[in-house]
Design a binder for these strands. Sequence first.
DNA 1: CCAAAAGTGTTGCGATTACACCCATGT
DNA 2: ACATGGGTGTAATCGCAACACTTTTGG
Lengths: 238, 238
Amino acid sequence: MSNKNIYGPQSSYTDVDKILVAIDCIIFGFQDGNLKILLFKRKVAPFEKEWSLIGSFVKVSENIKEASNRILEEITGLKGVYLKELRSYGNVSRDPGARVISIAHYALIKIDQFQLSTSDEFESQWFNMSDMPILILDHKKMVDDALNKLRQKIKTQPIGFELLNEKFTLTELKALYDSIYGYTLDRGNFRKKILGMKILDKMEEKDKANSKKGAFLYKFNEQKYKALLEDGAKVDFF
Amino acid sequence: MSNKNIYGPQSSYTDVDKILVAIDCIIFGFQDGNLKILLFKRKVAPFEKEWSLIGSFVKVSENIKEASNRILEEITGLKGVYLKELRSYGNVSRDPGARVISIAHYALIKIDQFQLSTSDEFESQWFNMSDMPILILDHKKMVDDALNKLRQKIKTQPIGFELLNEKFTLTELKALYDSIYGYTLDRGNFRKKILGMKILDKMEEKDKANSKKGAFLYKFNEQKYKALLEDGAKVDFF
DNA sequence: CCAAAAGTGTTGCGATTACACCCATGT
DNA sequence: ACATGGGTGTAATCGCAACACTTTTGG
C-alpha cells in the first residue's frame, strides 16, 4: 500500500492540485407569517434566466469568513448579519463549468431592515419555501440541508430573533416557529415556556396591527440568555 | 457598490483564484473506558517530529467524499467507516506553507477491528483525550470542535455503536457515554432508557471479563431504530 | 462469606400537554 | 354586542433523577 498522497515525506505544496472554491449563500427571511428565501435570476449563460443562490469565489487572499461576509454585504448592504457555515459540496461533477468546491453558508435576515441592492445587475426575489422555483446545480439540495439545519438549530439556540425586528410580539415569534417547523404549536404553552425562560424584555408599547386589543412588544435580552447558559441550564426552545 | 466578484455577468471560471484544498481527519476510538484519538508524528520538516492529524490534499478528479474515504482507508485499512464532515478551516494564515483550505472530517472507529498500517512511513499513536500532545497548525481547534460535535450528535443519533464492537455490554455502552460527556450517568436510569427504546437485541452470551456475574451482550438493531424514526418518535439518547 | 459488578424497583418532582376560560376593543 | 386575537389557569400525564434494593459468583 502506498501512502503517497497522504501528508508525509513525499508530500509538498507544489505538486498538488489547486481547485476553485466558492461560497454559496442560503438567505432566509421571515415576513407575513412565512419563512422566505432570497433567490437570484442569472442573466447570462450558462443557466441564463434560471434561479440560483447567490455566491462568489474565494480569493487566495481572503479568509472564508471574510468571503462569505463580503458576499452578503454586497447583496444586502448589511453588516453583522447572522451567517454560518452549512457544509461543503464537493462532487467533481456538481458544476459542469469547472471543478468547483462550494462551501455553503446560511444567513438569517431581518427583511424589514433589508432592501434589495439598487444595482440592477441581478434580479432577485423573496420566495416562500413552499413555492420555490427550480434551482440550478445542487442548490436545491443546499436549501433543503439549510432548512433542516435551521430546524435543528432553532431548537437549542436563540437564533429565531435574527429573523424578526428588534421588537416583536409573542404571536409573531410563535408564527416564526410554526412556519419553520411546518406545524402549529400550542399558543398558551408557547408563551408560558418562552416567558418562563426570562430572556425576553417586555416593552411598554403594544402592536395593534393584528388585533384590536393589541399585543405587547418584546425584545430578546442577550445578557439574560448568556447568564442562563453560565448557570449550566439546559436551554431548549420548541 | 460593485458586484464584480459575485457570480454574474462579469464572472467566469478562468479569471479566479485556485486554492489548495485538504482533508484532515479526527479519528476517534474507544478502549478501556476511554475515548481516544489517533495522532501522527511528522517525520519531515516543516513541523518535524510534531504531532498532527492525518490528512491529504483533494485531487481535481475526486469528490470530497472520495478523498476523505481514501485517506481513512490508506491509514486504517478499513472501508465503510463512519466518517462525516465537521467543517472547513479556511483562514489565509492557518498554514504558513501555503494557502490551504482544510475540510475537516471526523471518523468513529472500532479500535479492536483496527490495526495500524504496517507501513512505517508514519508514526501513529492512540491518545486519551486528556493527555493529547500539542498539535500543529489549527489541529487542536479541529479536535475540540470535533469533540463538541460528537457530544452533540451522540445525543440524538445512534452513533456510539460505531465505537464499540458489534456485541457489547450495557456497562461498556454507558462507559462510552460517560467518557464522551466527561461526567457519569446514573447506571439504572441509563439501562432503563436505552432498553426502553427497544433498539438493542439481547444475545444469549454473557461477557465475564469485568464481573463474576457476567453481563449480557447486546447488538444494535438498525432496522428497529429506523422503524422508530418512521413512527415519528423523538429519539433522544442522553 | 463477601466484595463487586449486574440488574430491578420505587418514589417524587418538574416539565409538558391539552384544553378551557377570561380580557380588551374596533367595528 | 360580538368577533377576534391577546392573555391566563388548570388538571392529567409523562419522563426522569435519585436512590435503595436484589442477584450472582469468583476468590
